[in-house]
C-alpha cells in the first residue's frame, strides 16, 4: 500500500526551532506533531530527529512509551471508551466490545473507510457518568450496549 508522505508545516518547523534549546522539549514537540497530523508520521519523526539532534531511536522509544502518542492515523471519528475502574464496574468493557463488534474492527484499529477507530483509554475523570465514551472530544455518558448503535449512526449521518 503506497501512502502519501506528510510534509512538515512551516508552523511546526518554527515551533520545533523555538523549543530546540530548551531542556526536556521532546514530549512537548511530539504533542505538537500529533496535534498537527493527528498522529506521529515516520517521516516527520525523522525530520524532528534531525532538527533536534536527538536519535530517532530515542524518539521512537518515547512515542511507544506513552499511551497518548500514536504511530498510525486514527479514524475521522475516534471513539475512546473509558476503562477506568468506575467505568469498568458499570460495564465499560461490554460497551467497548459492542463498538468493536458493530464496527467490525479490533481495538486500536480503524475501519477500512477511515471513518471510525476504537480505543480503550484510562480514566477520563468523569466517573460520575460511568460508563463513558468520548468521540472527538464529545462525551457520551451513562452508556449501555444499547446506545452504541445510535452513537455510530449519529456520526455516520454527520459524514
Amino acid at each position: 500500500m503506497s501512502k502519501e508522505l506528510e510534509k512538515m508545516t512551516p508552523e511546526l518547523r518554527a515551533f520545533i526551532e523555538e523549543w530546540k534549546a530548551k531542556p526536556g522539549n521532546l514530549i512537548m514537540v511530539l504533542h505538537r506533531v500529533q496535534q498537527t497530523y493527528g498522529y506521529i508520521p515516520r517521516e516527520i519523526a525523522i525530520e524532528t530527529s534531525e532538527i533536534l539532534g536527538v536519535p530517532l531511536a530515542k524518539i521512537y522509544g518515547v512515542i511507544t512509551f506513552y499511551n497518548f502518542f500514536r504511530l498510525r492515523k486514527a479514524g475521522k471519528y475516534n471513539i475512546q471508551v473509558c476503562l477506568g475502574t468506575a467505568c469498568y464496574l458499570r460495564g465499560g468493557d461490554d460497551v467497548l466490545k459492542e463498538f468493536e463488534k458493530q464496527l467490525g474492527v479490533g481495538l486500536n484499529a480503524t475501519t477500512p473507510d477511515g471513518m471510525f477507530s476504537v480505543e480503550a483509554v484510562r480514566c477520563l475523570g468523569c466517573c460520575g457518568l460511568a460508563p463513558v465514551a468520548v468521540v472527538n472530544g464529545e462525551v457520551h455518558g451513562k452508556l449501555s450496549t444499547k446506545d452504541v448503535e445510535n452513537i455510530i449512526a449519529k456520526y455516520c449521518a454527520e459524514g
Binding site: P23, L26, I27, M28, V62, Y66, N67
Partner: peptide, 25 residues
C-alpha cells in the same frame, strides 16, 4: 505547565522527573 502523555508510572516522582526531562518515564 508540562503536559504528560499518558503513563501511570509518571505519578511516581522520579519517573515524573524523567518525563519532565523529555525521556521515557
Amino acid at each position: 505547565i508540562k503536559a504528560g502523555a499518558g503513563a501511570f508510572v509518571c505519578g511516581e516522582e522520579t519517573a515524573l522527573i524523567e518525563s519532565l526531562e523529555g525521556n521515557r518515564g
